[in-house]
């Protein structure tokens, strides 16, 4: 994979995994630790859940296309076939490209780097489908017509889902429908790129002009979510607003659970003021990819010291 990127004009980078601030992601719990020094005082630091903010700072400074294999950390992650609190992520940002270009790049990457014996159904060409098409096909839901929480909730009820009495966000109800009807039905004979995610799911992917979607895709291989791609937001104010909104939501959730509330750095958005290039970023779970390519049933089969075994003292 390194050779592929090196030959295609990317620079490998190595950014901090121990950071004084993080990108606010309300649903991703963080690990915190403390830097301590008897003369300069102490400061809370965090293990990064992805190298995104540092890689974007480099791109803003003119690095061009970059890639990184990075250890990433997500706390409270439920252990299981597809989760380990410490995992390896490949992130690659391609300058002067959009999310459609990233599909072709990812196809070429996997076609050129698959391990010997990799099953056919994990290899390109990818199947492509929008989230709206998938919802229509597998759940009979017309997303264009259920754009507010109330109508979507009614739709979920019609499908026989049990929703708690308390109101919930559009995104949460959407995820119920998606996970119950759509994700289990995803064809597995080829990798599937599910594109155009609903705009209600807040993230740093640009919006599709004139339609309530975002230029974001997720790739499923063997039914497992393996990669996520954004056409990266470049507008500083939009990034600032996202930060404020996501941080407020993060604090709201964590105040009740008393989990780590990381510091954020609002000045991060300033790096977009100076002219951030058009760019598309992909994050790929390396443990999951290797698990699939090697025919293992759990990522623990490709991690030398799985978290669950360490916890059990093995």
């Amino acid at each position: 994979m390194r050779r592929y990127f090196d030959e295609h004009g990317y620079t490998e980078v190595d950014t901090p995994i121990l950071s004084p601030d993080l990108i606010p992601e309300p649903t991703i719990e963080n690990f915190a630790t403390t830097f301590s020094n008897e003369f300069v005082g102490s400061r809370e630091l965090y293990l990064v859940p992805s190298p995104e903010i540092y890689m974007k700072r480099l791109i803003a400074q003119g690095s061009g296309s970059i890639y990184q294999f990075s250890h990433c950390f997500r706390n409270s992650e439920q252990l299981g076939r597809q989760h380990n609190p410490e995992f390896t992520m490949l992130e690659y940002y391609t300058v002067d490209a959009d999310e459609q270009d990233s599909i072709a790049i990812t196809e070429e990457l996997l076609a050129n780097t698959a391990l010997p014996g990799c099953p056919e159904h994990l290899l390109p060409p990818f199947r492509k489908m929008t989230v709206a098409q998938a919802c229509k096909k597998y759940a009979g839901v017309d997303l264009d017509k259920v754009q507010d929480p109330k109508t979507l909730r009614a739709e979920a009820g019609r499908l026989g889902l049990h929703l708690p009495d308390a109101p919930e966000s559009w995104e949460e109800t959407f995820n119920r429908i998606f996970l119950t009807f759509v994700e289990p039905s995803i064809p597995q004979d080829r990798p599937l790129v599910l594109c155009e995610y609903p705009a209600q799911i807040e993230c740093l992917a640009t919006k599709t002009p004139g339609r309530p979607y975002r230029r974001r895709w997720e790739m499923y291989a063997g039914g497992v979510e393996v990669a996520n791609c954004y056409d990266e937001e470049r507008d500083a104010d939009t990034v600032r607003n996202y930060y404020r909104k996501a941080y407020a939501e993060l604090i709201r959730r964590r105040n009740s659970t008393e989990t780590v509330i990381p510091d954020i750095d609002l000045s991060f958005a300033d790096c977009f003021d100076v002219g951030f290039p058009q760019c598309s970023g992909v994050a790929m779970g390396m443990d999951r990819l290797l698990m699939l390519q090697l025919g293992k049933s759990s990522i623990e089969g490709v991690i030398l010291f799985p978290f669950s075994a360490m916890m059990a003292g093995r």
């Binding site: 119920r176 994700e183 799911i201």
Partner: peptide, 14 residues
């Protein structure tokens, strides 16, 4: 039992 986090969304259990 299998835990799933759709995209970067909140945790679900299947």
């Amino acid at each position: 039992r299998e835990f799933v986090n759709p995209g970067k969304g909140s945790a679900f259990v299947r």
